[in-house]
């Protein structure tokens, strides 16, 4: 249609005007200085961790906590990874790293799969007591872990998963279920009613609509939840401590054991290297997928 018509006579060629000089006000400078100082305060621990982990103990003993290493060494990293002791086991934090990975995947699949389907059923299908159930889930999301921990330990003993990787993974999934279900439910609630009506007329199958229509529409929330879950599972301490058995404890527990209960002369550089190694996976996710990370933590906080 439009190609028949000539360009409208009001359209004018772009005209360049001289740029105005940028103005920076005094208040802006004050704010920027303030923010920079705050940023320094926040950044200091990471900086200290990094420099300590690559210093020799000789330099550390001089007490120059903020100074750069005079001689860079990666030996503490190697020690932390391979030799650090947790209790009587001296195989480094790498044991914990692989345990954490082994816990991470099953619990991600369990928790996200379960919460997605539950959220979908509650949001898009007519379930009579959905409101009541959602309220119970909402409450459950706030319950302190200590109130359910002992019975969960006994239950996981009964179903013979206590002390295993699966035991830890299942407890993670159980604990995350209320919050994640609420997040998915709130997301799915915004799928237009007419799309669901159309799907109901076209297919009518609960699972088919889930896999073909709803799941492909979940991309964004899936990334957000994935980041939320990876971070919280990786950073968890309490579940790993009380549900992990010998040889199945996650990285945070190995780290805490090796640093807190270490005997003899303390190698602060090795401690910091071990701490950094533990912190790296979530930090990488944060620096790569920061936008989703922020969404994840806010979703995890407010929607709960």
């Amino acid at each position: 249609m439009t190609d028949i018509l000539p360009l409208s006579p009001n359209q004018k060629a772009f005209k360049e005007y001289p740029k105005k000089p940028a103005k920076i006000k005094g208040s802006s400078i004050a704010i920027l200085i303030f923010l920079t100082m705050c940023a320094l305060f926040i950044a200091v621990p990471l900086y200290v961790m990094i420099v300590t982990s690559i210093k020799h103990m000789d330099q550390i003993r001089l007490g120059e906590i903020f100074s750069l290493p005079t001689q860079v060494t990666f030996e503490p990293w190697w020690k932390a990874w391979n030799e650090v002791c947790s209790g009587v086991q001296c195989e480094g934090v790498k044991v914990g790293f692989f345990n954490s990975l082994a816990i991470l995947f099953p619990s991600l699949i369990l928790s996200i799969g379960l919460s997605m389907v539950t959220g979908y059923a509650l949001a898009l299908w007519n379930v009579k007591w959905a409101g009541t159930f959602l309220f119970i889930l909402f409450t459950a999301a706030f319950v302190p872990f200590q109130i359910i921990m002992i019975p969960l330990i006994i239950l996981s003993g009964i179903i013979k998963v206590y002390g295993t990787i699966w035991g830890v993974a299942i407890v993670h999934a159980v604990l995350a279920m209320p919050l994640l279900t609420l997040i998915f439910r709130n997301y799915y609630k915004d799928i237009p009613n007419e799309i669901m009506s159309a799907a109901l007329m076209d297919s009518g199958s609960f699972w088919r609509i889930f896999f073909e229509i709803v799941l492909p529409m979940s991309g964004n929330i899936l990334i957000v939840v994935l980041i939320l879950q990876i971070t919280s599972i990786w950073n968890d301490f309490i579940i790993g401590l009380y549900f992990g058995g010998i040889g199945t404890k996650p990285m945070t527990v190995i780290l805490a054991n090796s640093v807190i209960t270490s005997r003899g002369e303390i190698s602060y550089n090795v401690d910091m290297a071990a701490a950094l190694l533990t912190a790296i996976p979530p930090l990488v996710i944060y620096f790569v997928l920061g936008k989703f990370f922020v969404q994840g933590i806010t979703a995890g906080a407010i929607k709960g």
Binding site: P192, E194, I195, S197, A198, A199, M201, D202, S203, G204, S205, R208, E212, I213, P216, M217
Partner: peptide
């Protein structure tokens, strides 16, 4: 049925939309 907002499945192509109509 044809809906007011069309209710097309956003993640499917036009062909996928037509095919899904036949899934039952």
């Amino acid at each position: 049925m044809v809906f007011q907002s069309y209710a097309l499945y956003p993640t499917k192509t036009v062909r996928g939309n037509l095919k899904f109509g036949l899934s039952a």
